[in-house]
Nucleic acid binder design. Structure first.
Length: 868
DNA sequence: TGACAGTCAATAGA
DNA sequence: TCTATTGACTGTCA
């Protein structure tokens, strides 16, 4: 309950913030209409708006002052570490509207239909998430005021959090770090540690993870003293920082040169990326030698360049350096690498920004770097783009949606509700029809690994359940779908990947730039396996694979106690001989996955509900739910809408799953062994016709909705809910009367028997048996408190058919075998796929547990409402 | 600190 | 070879 409450609060909070952000953006864009729209793909501001300019000037002035102060502090202080400096609220620069386009977007309408629109006018939002937004403000302020010791790192640590992310440069690692930015770059702590332990020099170890670690560390430590940088890289993030970055900061004069010039950071970074790629320059080297930043920071900047207008002075520094580098005005050590073909369209030629004279600073920061390698760099500098394939994409698959490079997150933030199910469905179709693998798609388009893609495609969360970050992949999918050349491009990538693979395989290319580099481990990997790599491999933590019995035990434990106490966890770990962390992780994962799956399927069911053959009453109930649950932030019911809907979906799913529908279409299936929980219950049950199932399920849903309504709504809203649910029940009654009278009778009998056996307070005791979970729900206060209701239509129990996991339960078996009449009628006929049933059961358990907790919490004050 | 979202990546299965 | 599963992890939030 606590958890749910928190969710509600979080949702509320996010919603408020989201609205606030949207409002800001809208305001901003409304104000910014006069902005220079000619800037191609520019996310930089060209604010010509007077008031904005004034504000901007003030801010800039303030920044300059702060900068001066910081510089002074920098001179005074040395090696200071983090200091938490109280930060006054600061303004958040708002992005000028990039001119990206977000072509066809499937927009989920209120009525559930899809609206495909060309949202060329979509205005981006430079926001990661509402929470991140707020934090970024704080961090930004910190970086602005910044303590001297963490000035540089603070800058990027904060700034990059609000960078807009391009659609194209999709790197799994980067993508994964979108919201937090950190390090998601993929870290497997233990791996990182190993890397850290084993590598003495980050430049020697090109392991991607390690580089990520470096990213993380450097992000924390920021631009450090050059000589210490590498060393610091192997320290935890809390390592005291040095003040001096690898590359001395640009002088105020240099800032001045660019300060008021509009720079298309997007274009700039694109050019840099091209140049890096063409010249095979490693990001890490580039970052350290040219920008004075870690590879991660470079990667971030290149893949998610912040609009110029949003950059602080310090934030602009790297971009200035980039310009200098592009124009060969920086220490040209890097660009003079053999592999670097200077002829490669130096963007500088086209870059509008003036080229300030190379400063001594530049000379310092770009010492010749003979170390640079091509193979290594190739990979690394592709890493920001995306891994392997995506690295190819950076060259050959520039961007399926160039415009979206303005910042996918902006699009996400501004995106209307998308139908994730439809999108994923479509994507799956396209991928399948065109024989395009998930891996390729994921790595090059979504910036995710195959597993994640599979996950997303098969179990897309409802839009409203996704955080901004979580919505990103779906927006990318949407954008990709709208790209008329998406398939061709992906195919090209596939070819390129093949070529790269062949090259590598035959020794032409020693470094993986192909599929194997699909993970960060190969980023910037050295051509050959280093000794430390072997060490790493040896030290690699083996993946834990839980035995079936262990899983079953955990599942049972979960059904009994979804949120196990520490004691329970320890007990389980002892009994199962597992690490407590493994048990904890398992519970986390299981809860999360059950939740997600249920939601996803609920969403799917919603779609199906729209179909003619779906239950009218439920459809109406669904609609009514939507209608009744406005998204007003201050509305309790609104806040609870997701929850209620979730519950509804869960119930719906479990009572009316697609499997059941499928099964119904498929005819009666052979009951498999692990369907025993259903088959045993259904011996007297004829899977029957779809209509019958529908009838059976409908009441339960309506009933459950009623319960949910009772427990989560107040006043008139609750009444409304109840009316609706009653309406559904009435319909169900009708259905039952017409189509499944016999079945209903059976149900009644069954329910009578069942309910008579029900022990409302046998939560714990019921755990002892395998029927635990579902019966927990059945016997939950709400269920118990509405026996009449149960009796009248009965499907609830069927809905809550005993979950009894897959392991046979003597008790259960006995009960059902000996007393057919007491068998619960299955919600749906057993499906052909036994895992589905089992999964459904598990989900049911999950659902019921949730409901149970809700009801338990609401029971005290809502008791009367349960009966009607 | 716990719950959670999101993700990676090893592994299993088709 | 591709996809699905899933243990583990990071970062965020309250």
């Amino acid at each position: 309950m606590v958890c749910i409450t928190l969710n509600i609060d979080q949702r509320k909070r996010r919603k408020e913030l989201s609205q606030e952000i949207r409002k800001k953006i809208i305001d901003k864009h409304v104000k910014g209409e006069t902005k220079d729209s000619s800037a191609p793909l520019s996310s930089s501001a060209s604010s010509s708006n007077g008031s904005e300019d004034a504000i901007k000037n003030i801010l800039e002035q303030a920044r300059r002052e702060m900068h001066a102060q910081k510089q002074a502090l920098l001179e005074i202080e040395s090696g200071s570490s983090h200091r938490s400096i109280p930060t006054p609220p600061n303004e958040r620069p708002i992005l000028s509207p990039p001119t990206h386009r977000a072509p066809h977007v499937y927009i989920k309408q209120e009525d559930g239909s899809l609206l495909t629109s060309t949202s060329s006018t979509q205005t981006p939002l430079s926001v990661l998430s509402p929470a991140a937004f707020v934090q970024s403000i704080i961090r930004k302020v910190k970086s602005e005021i910044g303590d001297a010791g963490s000035y540089f790192d603070q800058h990027w640590a904060s700034e990059k959090n609000i960078l807009s992310r391009p659609f194209t440069s999709v790197s799994p690692s980067l993508s994964s770090s979108s919201s937090s930015y950190s390090s998601m770059v993929n870290g497997r702590p233990w791996k990182k540690v190993e890397n850290i332990e084993t590598s003495q020099n980050e430049e020697e170890v090109s392991n991607g993870e390690e580089s990520h670690k470096i990213v993380e560390i450097k992000t924390e430590s920021g631009s450090q003293d050059g000589q210490n940088m590498n060393q610091l890289s192997y320290y935890p993030a809390y390592v005291p920082r040095n003040l001096k970055p690898t590359v001395p900061p640009l002088t105020p004069e240099q800032y001045e040169l660019y300060m008021y010039r509009e720079v298309d950071t997007l274009d700039l970074t694109r050019q840099v990326k091209e140049k890096l790629a063409k010249n095979g320059i490693c990001q890490r080297i580039f970052g350290e030698k040219v920008l004075g930043l870690s590879q991660g920071s470079v990667s971030d900047m290149l893949s998610r360049p912040k609009p110029w207008s949003k950059l602080t002075q310090k934030g602009r520094e790297p971009f200035i350096r980039m310009q200098l580098w592009l124009t060969d005005q920086l220490g040209q050590g890097i660009t003079q690498q053999p592999a670097l073909s200077q002829g490669t369209a130096s963007p500088s030629e086209t870059h509008p920004s003036p080229s300030p004279p190379p400063s001594p600073l530049d000379q310092e920061k770009t010492p010749p770097e003979p170390v640079i390698l091509s193979s290594e760099s190739i990979k690394e500098n592709q890493q920001p783009e995306s891994r392997s394939v995506s690295s190819l994409s950076s060259r050959t698959f520039p961007s399926p949606h160039p415009a979206t490079t303005a910042g996918i997150q902006e699009i996400v933030a501004m995106s209307p509700e998308l139908d994730t199910y439809s999108i994923t469905k479509k994507v799956k179709e396209v991928l399948t029809d065109n024989n395009l693998g998930q891996r390729l798609f994921g790595e090059s388009i979504l910036g995710l690994t195959q597993g994640s893609v599979s996950d997303l495609l098969s179990r897309p969360k409802p839009w409203h359940k996704l955080s901004l970050k979580g919505r990103e992949p779906f927006v990318r999918m949407q954008l990709w779908l709208s790209d008329p050349h998406n398939i061709e491009k992906l195919r090209d990538m596939k070819k390129m990947e093949k070529k790269a693979y062949l090259k590598r395989r035959y020794g032409l290319v020693s470094v993986g730039s192909d599929s194997e580099s699909s993970n960060t481990r190969t980023d910037c990997a050295s051509p050959s396996l280093q000794p430390q790599d072997y060490n790493l491999m040896q030290m690699k933590k083996p993946r834990v694979v839980l035995a079936l019995e262990e899983k079953e035990a955990l599942k049972k434990a979960y059904q009994m106690e979804p949120y196990p106490t520490q004691q329970t966890i320890e007990l389980l770990s002892l009994q199962l001989n597992l690490k407590t962390n493994t048990v904890i992780n398992w519970f986390h994962n299981y809860r999360s996955r059950m939740r997600r799956e249920i939601l996803m399927e609920g969403q799917h069911d919603n779609d199906i509900d729209q179909e003619p053959d779906s239950c009218d009453s439920f459809t109406s109930a669904t609609v009514s739910h939507r209608e009744l649950t406005p998204q007003s932030p201050d509305s309790e019911i609104g806040d609870r809408k997701p929850l209620i809907n979730d519950l509804k979906h869960m119930l719906h799913k479990n009572c009316y799953s697609k499997e059941s529908r499928t099964a119904m279409k498929i005819k009666k299936e052979n009951m498999e062994e692990d369907d025993y929980d259903f088959t045993n219950h259904c011996k007297s049950y004829d899977p029957g016709t779809p209509s019958r199932t529908c009838c059976e399920l409908e009441p339960s849903r309506a009933l459950r909705e009623k319960q949910v309504a009772s427990s989560h709504c107040d006043g008139s809203q609750r009444l409304h809910y109840l009316r609706k649910s009653n309406s559904g029940l009435e319909k169900c009654h009708q259905h039952v009367a017409h189509d499944c009278a016999a079945s209903v009778h059976t149900h009644k009998e069954i329910m009578g028997a069942d309910m008579s056996q029900a022990d409302p307070i046998s939560f714990k005791s019921s755990i002892e048996s395998s029927r635990c979970s579902l019966e927990v729900s059945l016997n939950s206060p709400s269920a118990a408190s509405s026996p009449g209701l149960m009796m009248s239509v009965s499907p609830v129990p069927s809905c809550s058919a005993p979950i009894s996991p897959s392991l046979p339960n003597p008790m259960l078996t006995k009960t059902h075998s000996s007393s057919p009449s007491s068998d619960m009628v299955p919600l749906h006929p057993p499906t052909k796929h036994s895992p589905n049933n089992q999964r459904r059961n598990e989900k049911m358990a999950n659902l019921n547990n949730i409901i149970h907790r809700l009801e338990r919490a609401a029971n005290k004050e809502e008791t009367l409402e349960w009966e009607f």
